[in-house]
């Protein structure tokens, strides 16, 4: 499974809804995810991509859209 597909799977899993966000669509401002889904999504990304995201990187803006998540992961992988 490619990176984007994995990310979309995690987003759908934590939102508990069938959603398909556009690459640069805000996951939070659009209402697809609420604030409390954010920690779950970050944990899901850590598990799926085998990384540990340090607290200093836990800035919601880094995880606001599929594209931004991809950019962050590229900086870490």
């Amino acid at each position: 499974m490619d990176k984007r597909a994995k990310i979309l799977e995690i987003i759908e899993s934590v939102s508990k809804k069938k959603i398909r966000p556009g690459p640069d669509e805000s996951l939070f401002d659009s209402g697809m995810l609420d604030s409390f889904a954010l920690p779950d999504m970050v944990t899901g990304l850590e598990e799926a991509f085998g990384i540990r995201i340090p607290d200093a990187d836990l800035n919601p803006r880094k995880f606001d859209s599929v594209q931004r998540i991809e950019q962050y992961l590229e900086s870490r992988l």
Partner: peptide, 12 residues
């Protein structure tokens, strides 16, 4: 910034 607070608190 509720998202930052929740994200940080949920981890720390």
């Amino acid at each position: 910034n509720g998202r930052t607070v929740i994200l940080q608190a949920a981890r720390k």
